[in-house]
C-alpha cells in the first residue's frame, strides 16, 4: 500500500469511526474482565476473610462465586463482542473498503 493510500484511509471518516468505536468497545470489555479478575485476585490476596464468607446459610463462598462469575463473564463478553463485531464493525469495514476501492 502506498503512503498516499494509507493517508487517505487514515483520514476517512468511516476509518476514524471504526477505530474509535472498536477500540472503545474492546477496551471497555477488556476492563470489565480485568476488573473482575482483579477483584478475584486481590480478594484472595488481601481480603481472604470476605472471600471465605458465604452469602447465604450454605457453604458456597464469595470466593467461589466470584471465580465462577469471572469465567462466565468471559464467555458472555466474548459472545457480545463477537455479535457486535459481526453486525457493526464488519459492515462498517466493508463499506470503508468499498469506498477506498478495495474489493
Amino acid at each position: 500500500m502506498s503512503p498516499t493510500e494509507t493517508e487517505k484511509c487514515l483520514n476517512h471518516p468511516k476509518f476514524k469511526e471504526l477505530i474509535r468505536a472498536r477500540r472503545r468497545f474492546g477496551l471497555v470489555f477488556s476492563l470489565i474482565i480485568a476488573v473482575g479478575y482483579a477483584v478475584y485476585v486481590l480478594g484472595m490476596s488481601f481480603a481472604p476473610g470476605f472471600m471465605s464468607q458465604s452469602p447465604g446459610s450454605g457453604s458456597m463462598t464469595y470466593g467461589i462465586i466470584i471465580g465462577v462469575l469471572v469465567i462466565i463473564s468471559g464467555m458472555v463478553c466474548s459472545g457480545i463482542y463477537t455479535w457486535r463485531a459481526n453486525r457493526y464493525f464488519d459492515v462498517l469495514n466493508g463499506e470503508l473498503r468499498k469506498e477506498l476501492g478495495h474489493e
Partner: peptide, 24 residues
C-alpha cells in the same frame, strides 16, 4: 480447594482480552 481455581480463572481472564485486543 479454592486456591487451585485460579488456574482456571486465569485462563478465562486471558482469552476474552485476546479476542478484544489481539486476534483480528
Amino acid at each position: 480447594g479454592f486456591d487451585a481455581m485460579i488456574l482456571a480463572v486465569g485462563v478465562m481472564a486471558a482469552w476474552p482480552v485476546i479476542l478484544f485486543l489481539m486476534a483480528e
